[in-house]
Amino acid sequence: MNLKLRVWRQDNAEEAGGFEEYEALDISPDMSFLEMLDVVNEDIIADGEEPIAFDSDCREGICGTCSMVINGVPHGGQQGTTACQLHMRHFSDGDTIVIEPWRATAFPVHRDLIVDRTSFERIQQAGGFISVRTGSVPDANATPVPKEDSDLAMDAAQCIGCGACVAACKNASAMLFVAAKVSHLSLMPQGQPERTRRAFSMVNQMDEEGFGNCTVTGSCEAVCPKEISLDFIARMNREYGRALLKKGCS
């Protein structure tokens, strides 16, 4: 099939960017979306131009590196699918496809479709851990964990940190991501001792990074490639409220 692409090109965070048009010719339905871009890039290089810069690594939906808005939807709108797992059989001959980077103040553009997500790093450094020293831990089976809790923690822990939730949100809120992180650890018995501190520090860091407020529109859940549930946001709000109360008392 033959397609038209409208792709966001931008040299770096300082320069203004804009759309450029490209033709993607002879595209096979078996190609992945990123392979289609590879093919277009090979042609661009052959013409002596610089290829479209986009992030990817695992190309199987687990590393969370790929990040692009396809026809207005982060990751392209197939349920539970990252951009790298999207295949061209979902498009038709003659389509025009618009491709843009994540857009959010807290995710400045590095180049073209590549953004800076280090704000996510700082949120996790603020408290997304359980303080244990290497080697000085009890036997793993000394602390039984109810299967339901562990399964629910795993539901949250599956988040790949891609940032699609932020890109989809009209307020550019990072609530779903932070909620997934906070919930994972607060659901595990090992995470209890630092539960208060963790929720407090991570939420405060999120605010400092310039992410917007959550007004529970649910667009994050709809685009999340790991189908992280909005319920975790409610859970985090409870965690944060609890943390505030505890802080107030002490």
Partner: peptide, 19 residues
């Protein structure tokens, strides 16, 4: 395994709560 469990890795569990 002890180290990872202490870090909060949500390993698969049996109904009794053991790994």
């Amino acid at each position: 395994i002890d180290q990872c469990a202490a870090q909060g890795v949500p390993f698969a569990r049996e109904y009794g709560g053991l790994l």
